[in-house]
Design a protein around this nucleic acid. Structure first.
Length: 719
DNA sequence: GTGTAGGTGGTTTTT
DNA sequence: CCACCTACAC
């Protein structure tokens, strides 16, 4: 077969990656080096040159968007539909496997996926049942801790026994949460992955079946895999060893969410003889931008090592704007965009990037007064909106009466006279009898445990749902949705509200009907689920675009994290100030500064033609003005690649190297120095991080091991 | 059941 | 400073 269409568009490194004979391959793909192309062409190569059946290929991504894009590009390349090929997100694929093997995985057939909002509510309910005070045990933190453990494949019973009351409480909450989910057939996001991993670990038949089925496994954004995901990938490819992983350690920015760059670093060890390919030619940015990004990321110690190069010209210098305050910053940015647009450029060729979402406000205000259309990324997605979740709550309850999260959500929405007292009784009954809220409700009524009025209200609710279930049995998904919205009174409820917000809610609900109309399930292999369940699972696993609005030509505002994977001719990286970027909270935790720097690298490498770096000398934060210090990342950009634009107001030139000088003077502490700590005894300085009073020192103590110390708080004595 | 005063917390986010 | 949540009063 002629494979020139697969190989011709590739450079040497890309071609090497694509044509490597089956076996473990690790592709270190720098920003803008054509990683998606390598992935899709690798699949094309396997199919057309190696003669491998598409059915034997599994391609895993992190986001639905990436998966869709890959599918589209493969179909384009190979010119055939890829329906039979398994391609999707970790969660999507694992969900599919769990549906097929629900019994072996120990789940009820009707198991339901809960999102983090549902999870949060559930944890609060458990806190209530355990009689724990939320003020002492913040549900968010417990949720975070539980997910953290799950992502490391640790179940409650794996936690070490502890004398610490805090640990014991965490254990109690985690264990009850697990029990609760198990009893009700609820599966959270991490559970989808963990269950699948355990299924593969414990069930040899299933493991071997899928190992044989997927002879070739490809993973995108490998640096973002967490412990469970990598363990599962290893299990899946244990017999074939055909794992093709593409990633970039320099773009690992989700460590705080459980991602383990180490997976990249240990790939070689786990797969001896693996082919390692570096993609270093960049096709995106002009020379100055690339040189600057290289220089910044070079400051990181923990790297596999890579240096991007380009055939493109140097292009424009990066521009540095020191604003007097955040309003000045925004005005400068918007003014610059105005002239960019006047020069005939599109507005959507521009991105305003920032470290934290709160920064978008000032830009929005300025864009608004300049009548410049814009779009802010982030915020709630379609299926996460309250009114949509309400409607889905009804549909879930119809689909499965025992869905407690749904029951709790809609039992009194719209208000139908079922108050907290009544609900508490039902909850209590459900807890003592170990039955679902639905069952508890009906038993509480038949046993006449409720006052007449409440009993009537609850009875009416149960009847409503039962009737809806009966009436919608043979309906199409669209009719069902429509029916639910109208007979539940939900639509009416929001229509009656006359706030602007409610108006949008009604529109969203109407949008849900058309989402139901247009819903086409991905072809499932052998397992058959009804359309409604598929729709509900899809809603949980694919929350939808940020805004389902039309593609207008508008300026793009987003956090640096959301910008990963995107590119724009003109990019503004704003709020480049110590404490904001790198963020204060990252300076306080070891190892996180390097992740902040990677974030900076990601931001810079989004720019194709022109990059602006901005900071404000005074920034109003939480109602208070703060004098800022330019981000250390600014000083890490070589002077040859950047030109400084003064703020019209005050401004003095950014003090180059100022930070570095301070670091040297204020710290006698240097790696290698011997110190004494009043509690931990003697040790040696391993690493230093942060400046001035934020300095953190990693010290290897001879008696207690390695610790992070903040000299500002704990006095260290030099030996 | 709805509205409002008072309190609190305020990186980053996909699934 | 502001957005969100909770508690409490009508």
């Amino acid at each position: 077969m002629d494979v020139s269409h697969i190989l011709d568009p590739l450079n040497d490194a890309q071609r090497r990656a694509v044509t490597t004979p089956p076996g473990p391959v690790l592709v270190l793909a720098g920003a803008g080096s054509g990683k998606t192309r390598v992935l899709t062409h690798r699949i094309g190569w396997l199919v057309q040159a190696e003669g491998i059946s598409p059915l034997q290929i599994l391609a895993v991504t992190f986001t639905n968007k990436a998966s869709r894009e890959m599918r589209g590009r493969i179909e384009e390349l190979l010119n055939f539909p890829t329906g039979g090929m398994w391609m999707g997100t970790f969660h999507g694929i694992c969900h599919r496997l769990l549906r097929m093997h629900y019994q072996e995985a120990g789940l009820p057939e009707t198991f339901e996926i809960i999102d983090s909002d549902d999870q949060y509510r559930l944890i609060r309910r458990i806190l209530g049942e355990l009689d724990l005070d939320e003020a002492y045990w913040p549900p968010r933190q417990l949720q975070w801790a539980i997910n953290q453990h799950k992502e490391e494949a640790r179940r409650a019973h794996h936690l070490p026994a502890s004398d610490d009351y805090h640990q014991q409480t965490l254990y109690r909450v985690y264990a009850s949460y697990e029990e609760f989910c198990q009893r009700l057939g609820l599966v959270d996001f991490a559970e989808i992955l963990l269950r699948t991993l355990e299924l593969f670990k414990n069930n040899q038949t299933i493991r071997e079946t899928w190992q044989k089925r997927f002879r070739h496994v490809l993973v995108d954004e490998f640096q973002d895999t967490n412990t469970i995901q990598y363990q599962w990938l290893r299990l899946l490819s244990a017999s074939s060893r055909n794992l093709f992983a593409v990633g970039d350690d320099d773009q690992s920015i989700y460590g705080w969410r459980g991602a383990r760059v180490e997976n990249l670093l240990t790939f070689e060890k786990d797969y001896p003889g693996a082919e390692i390919v570096r993609l270093e030619q960049n096709y995106r940015s002009s020379g100055h931008i690339l040189a600057a990004a290289n220089a910044v990321i070079a400051r990181n110690e923990d790297r596999m090592g890579k240096e991007l190069w380009t055939e493109a010209a140097d292009g424009n210098l990066i521009r540095l704007y020191g604003a007097s305050n955040e309003i000045d910053e925004a005005q400068f940015v918007v003014g610059t965009i105005e002239s960019w647009v006047e020069q005939g450029n599109r507005r959507d060729s521009v991105a305003i990037l920032y470290r934290s979402n709160a920064q978008s406000r000032v830009f929005e205000e300025q864009l608004l007064s300049a009548a410049m259309p814009y779009r802010v990324y982030g915020g709630l997605r379609f299926f996460e909106r309250a009114e949509i979740k309400d409607a889905l709550g009804y549909m879930r309850l119809i689909s499965n009466h025992d869905s407690d999260p749904s029951f709790e959500r809609i039992v009194n929405l719209p208000p139908r006279g079922i108050g907290n007292r009544t609900l508490e009784k039902i909850r209590e009954y459900s807890r003592t009898q170990q039955i679902s809220m639905w069952q508890a409700a009906s038993q509480v009524i038949s046993q006449e445990l409720l006052p007449a009025r409440a009993a009537g209200a609850v009875g009416a609710f149960l009847k409503l749902i039962s009737e809806m279930t009966a009436q919608t049995e043979d309906n199409s998904l669209e009719d069902l949705t429509d029916h639910v919205l109208n007979t539940s009174g939900l639509l009416e409820h929001y229509r009656k509200e006359k706030s602007e917000r409610a108006q949008g809610r009604v529109e969203n609900l109407e949008e849900l009907v058309s989402a139901a109309r247009n819903f086409i399930p991905a072809e499932t292999d052998d397992n058959e689920l009804d359309l409604l369940s598929l729709f509900l699972a899809n809603a949980a696993l694919e929350a939808g675009e940020g805004q389902a609005e039309e593609w207008e030509d508008c300026v793009q505002l987003m956090s640096l994290h959301s910008a990963k994977g995107l590119e724009f001719p003109l990019v503004f990286l704003c709020g480049m100030e110590e404490g904001l970027f790198p963020h204060q909270r990252s300076l306080e935790e070891p190892g996180r500064l390097e992740e902040e720097r990677r974030l900076c690298y990601v931001g810079m490498t989004r720019a194709m033609e022109q990059l602006y770096l901005c900071y404000a000398e005074i920034r109003r934060l939480y109602g208070k003005d703060h004098y800022t210090q330019g981000s250390r990342f600014l000083t890490e950009v070589p002077t040859a690649n950047i030109e400084e634009i003064r703020s019209s107001a005050i401004s003095r030139p950014l003090q180059r190297g100022g930070l570095r000088k301070e670091e040297k003077n204020s710290n006698e502490l240097q790696p290698g120095k011997q110190v004494r700590h009043e509690k931990f005894g003697e040790g040696m300085v391993v690493t230093l991080e942060g400046q001035g009073e934020h300095t953190r020192v990693q010290i290897h103590f001879s008696e207690v091991g390695t610790k992070w110390i903040i000299p500002a708080y704990a006095s260290l004595e030099m030996i």
